[in-house]
Amino acid sequence: MKPVDFRYSRPGTIPEAIELLNEGAGGAKIMAGGQSLGPMLNLRLAQPEQIVDITAIPALTMVTEERDAVVFGACITHAAFEDGRVPDPANGFLRRVAGGIAYRAVRNRGTIGGSLVHADPAADWITTLTALDAELIVATAQGERRVALEAFMMMAFGVHLDDGEFLAGIRIRKFSPAARFGYYKFCRKRGEFAEAMAAVVIDPALNIYRGVIGATQSRPLVLDDIRDLLRGGGESSAPNGAALARARDRVADLGIDDDPITDAMHGNAFARALEQVIA
């Protein structure tokens, strides 16, 4: 199948892009690498009147190092993360996650911002960056607004963006050298949608003990403080196995999917991610 016809423009600045969005009045759609949008266009599930290609806006492919964080332009590709062409404030975790997204030819065009706005619950960045408590920088007519990723995604394919706004950047804090990251995803076929996924981030220096369960039917589930589930791991005398089993059961019992088998998978994915940080 081929897409419906649409207008296309490639603005060079953020204000131009916003103007185009406002002119489009809801019929305009932002495109970066187009790797999620492309199939939807081809299937005619997405039928925009106008595509605003934001890849020629220099600011969106820039990396800005701040004292305690790194800000990534929304149009930076997965491959750039995978190849280590950008700094990794999460001690190599971003690189690892990026390398597991879809396939190399997709990663060469697919972008971190595009993935977040597409908000497929089974996508890698949604879950892992929620675990890192990433902050999103949204370009608006007034300038910008900032929103935590956790509050940005509201349901499958549903994010908190108004018609005249788009995602411009992602701010990820610098984790301490002692931070530990766990990520596990289960896919039936390599590179395809995850059936279950979970991420765990532990950084005692920053007082972060977060767990996230992704690949739900909706937005990821955030476990703000999983310290009680860590007991038994690490320095404690209780065996890791017991801690993991407890974590697994606790997540499985949440009833995320109203299906005991899928719920058990969520628990197992969480336990495997947890295992990586307490092993």
Binding site: R10, G33, D53, T55, I57, M62, C75
Partner: peptide, 8 residues
């Protein structure tokens, strides 16, 4: 470059 290959 850091953006989508071929774009921009």
């Amino acid at each position: 470059g850091l953006g989508p290959a071929g774009s921009g």
